[in-house]
C-alpha cells in the first residue's frame, strides 16, 4: 500500500508544471524514504531529477517500493481538477495498474477522486557522478527566468561566464548581441534577493536557450535558484522545494567540435 498526503496540493501542481513541458512521461519511484523521479527529455540533452522526502508529506506510507509510470499530460489533467487550497492524497495498492488522487477542499465540503491508469515505462536510470564544481551561483529564480527569457529573443544559445567579479549571460544572433552582467551582492539581510558566487576557477559554457527556458518553469517553486558549472560538464540548475525536497535539471553543454 502506498499513500502520500500533501495539504498543499498546489506544490505538486507547480512541480508538474515544471516538468511537463520537458517530459512526456516519467516514472515516480516511491520508497520508504520518499518519491524520486529521474528522466531525460526526448532528445536526451537534459535530465530531470526530482526528490521529495517522505517526512515532507503530511502523511506518508509506503509498505513496498513501487514504480508508477505516468503520462504527464494525463496527470496535468487530473491536477487541473484540483482547487488551489485543496489537500491531495495519492494512493496505490501494491502491484496496482492504477493510481488514485483524492482532492479535499479546506472545509472538506467537496471531495473528488480521480483514478488514472499507470504505464509500464522502459526506464533507464543514469548515474550522476560527484563533481567538484568550479562555480556555484545562487541567485533569485525570477531574475534567472527574466534573463533567459530576454536573451532568448536574440539567439539560440546563452554563454554563462562566471568569474569572482560576477556572472555574465551573453547571446548573439542575426540582429545583434545581448549581455547581462550580475555582480555579487552584499545584501546579506535579504538572502532571497542576493547573488552569491562561490568560485574556485572561472568557467564559461554555452547552453541551449530552449532548455534553460523550460527549466525556468520551476520558478514558482522557489525564490532562489542555484547554477553549478564546471568545464565540460553538464550545468546543474537546482530549485529547492521548501520542506519537501528539490528539483534539479542537468543540461549538456554545447561544445566545439
Amino acid at each position: 500500500m502506498f499513500e502520500a498526503r500533501l495539504v498543499n496540493s498546489a506544490t505538486f501542481k507547480k512541480i508538474l508544471d515544471a516538468i511537463k513541458d520537458l517530459l512526456d512521461q516519467a516514472s515516480f519511484d516511491c520508497s520508504e524514504s520518499g518519491i524520486q523521479l529521474q528522466a531525460m527529455d526526448n532528445s536526451h540533452v537534459s535530465l530531470v531529477s526530482l526528490n521529495l522526502k517522505s517526512d515532507g508529506f503530511d502523511k506518508y506510507r509506503c509498505d513496498r517500493s513501487l514504480t508508477m509510470g505516468m503520462n504527464l499530460a494525463s496527470l496535468s489533467k487530473v491536477f487541473r481538477c484540483s482547487g488551489s487550497d485543496d489537500t491531495v492524497t495519492i494512493k496505490a495498492q501494491d502491484d496496482a495498474d492504477t493510481v488514485t488522487f483524492m482532492f479535499e477542499s479546506k472545509k472538506q465540503e467537496k471531495i473528488s477522486d480521480y483514478e488514472m491508469k499507470l504505464m509500464n515505462l522502459d526506464q533507464e536510470h543514469l548515474g550522476i557522478p560527484e563533481t567538484e564544481f568550479s562555480c556555484i551561483i545562487k541567485m533569485p529564480s525570477a531574475e534567472f527566468a527574466r534573463i533567459v527569457r530576454d536573451l532568448s529573443q536574440f539567439g539560440e544559445s546563452i554563454v554563462i561566464s562566471c568569474t569572482k567579479e560576477g556572472v555574465k549571460f551573453s547571446t548573439q544572433g542575426d540582429i545583434g548581441t545581448g549581455n547581462v552582467k550580475l555582480a555579487q551582492t552584499n545584501n546579506f539581510d535579504k538572502e532571497e534577493e542576493s547573488v552569491i558566487i562561490d568560485m574556485q576557477e572561472p568557467v564559461s559554457l554555452t547552453f541551449a536557450c530552449q532548455y534553460l527556458n523550460l527549466f525556468t518553469k520551476a520558478t514558482p517553486l522557489s525564490n532562489q535558484v542555484t547554477l553549478s558549472m564546471c568545464d565540460n560538464v553538464p550545468l546543474v540548475v537546482e530549485y529547492q522545494i521548501p520542506d519537501l525536497g528539490h528539483l534539479c535539471y542537468y543540461l549538456a553543454p554545447k561544445i566545439e567540435e
Binding site: V45, G127, P234, A252, K254, I255, E257
Partner: peptide, 14 residues
Amino acid sequence: KLSQKSITSFFKPN
C-alpha cells in the same frame, strides 16, 4: 562551430 552534446555522453546508465 558548437555542437550540442547529449546528456548520455556525460552520465552513463547505472
